[in-house]
Design a protein around this nucleic acid. Structure first.
Lengths: 220, 220
DNA sequence: TAGATTGTTAATCGATTAACAATC
DNA sequence: TAGATTGTTAATCGATTAACAATC
């Protein structure tokens, strides 16, 4: 009952998404069992961490065999809400916003794009997939009428908080922020930030700070 | 000299990118000083964390005034390698790959896209910005001749590791992986994962697990 | 059975927060 | 000066790893 007692730490949640992906792959390959050691090796973790993490979602294996792949997939799917259908709006119809609206994986994985919005009059009225780009003044009404729960922010950084506030006022439940600017939200509204440029900075730093060291042989 | 003694933890690096973004904004507004308390409030941290983090990059403030914004920006820019020009290739010319290749922010922030690759014959030869989509068999040669150091993976998940291996063999220094699949790389090659669908799963879980609680008043 | 792998406890490690003297 | 905010130490908190008895 660990999952009922306490909230699961974000670091653990992040790894759970990895286990889910891996379990999905194994399922397709008709593999039935997986050990904590295999999961750990495939995902760059320790087997101890894997076992502790699965405790968080009350998923138990069997000594000597490991974990049932299909059960793992099911438990994680439910835990992460990947079985639900989430109505999702995209704000910003630039390169990134359009790409996300068209990104087939989102729809396949349960995030149905029900609207795309922009303030640029040259974009409003154009079509992305089978959606018409709407002006941002229609965003609040759309969130309500289409029962959107998730909002994706893909606008220029200067409009980030304004767009977030508008969605929050309209009752959005969660935001995926793709801009560099941090979003402030009340506790009831969840925010996950995917900061592409910042990720490249992180990568650049890691490359730079490793440059001094001697080149090492491969993998492990 | 803390920065010379030890490597900076990844969690800290993640926050440093936020300080940099915030400092850049303040610079544009001609603000000269910022306190750890203000940084903390704007970015959802504690002032203690901010002060500890800046110690990692040997950046010191002045009691009663705070930190010099421009100095902070400069130090973090250098630390994160945001002042360098990084030659970057994009693999995958689907919706996402094309959007990233066109993403102006990358170029502005020092990541110059010097090539885009795909194996789909319908895409090869088409143009994205002023780049011609090249077949993946040309990727290794291109990495070498164009001195690419950073590779962005935006292919279907099933090809992720193969594409990564190809780039690693060609001498790439860092990979930004945008697929759901974990990438294995030797220690000398840095990997940062930006898992869009997984981020939505995280968001979905946070929304779900919060649903039970009473709605709360805003921000405070 | 013997051996492998779990569930779980304890030890370690690291990161965050608190507190406060130093100081501008 | 008095007050605010730093740099830094110590305390707390949490996450990861190690170890091993339980068990399939």
């Amino acid at each position: 009952m660990a999952s009922r007692r306490k909230t699961v730490p974000r670091a653990v949640i992040g790894r759970l998404t990895k286990y889910l992906t891996y379990a999905q792959d194994l399922c397709e390959q008709k593999v039935e069992w997986v050990s904590s050691a295999e999961l750990a090796e495939a995902l760059g973790l320790t087997s101890s961490t894997v076992r502790q993490d699965l405790l968080h979602v009350d998923f138990y294996g069997i000594a000597k065999r490991g974990y049932r792949v299909d059960g793992l997939r099911q438990v994680l799917t439910r835990f992460l809400g990947a079985d639900a259908a989430w109505n999702t709006v995209v704000v910003g119809a630039g390169n990134l916003g359009k790409a996300l609206a068209r990104h087939g994986e989102f729809a396949r994985r349960g995030f149905r794009i029900v609207g795309i919005f922009d303030n640029d009059p040259r974009k409003v009225g154009s079509h992305v997939n089978n959606l018409r780009v709407e002006p941002i003044r229609d965003l609040p009404g759309s969130i309500v009428s289409k029962k959107a729960e998730v909002g994706i922010i893909a606008v220029p950084a200067t409009s980030t908080q304004a767009v977030a506030d508008l969605m929050i006022l309209s009752g959005i439940k969660g935001l995926l922020n793709l801009t560099l600017t941090h979003v402030l939200a009340p506790r009831g509204v969840k925010v996950v930030e995917v900061r592409l440029t910042a990720s490249l900075w992180e990568l650049a730093h890691l490359i730079k700070s490793d440059a001094g060291r001697a080149a090492r042989p491969a993998r492990g």
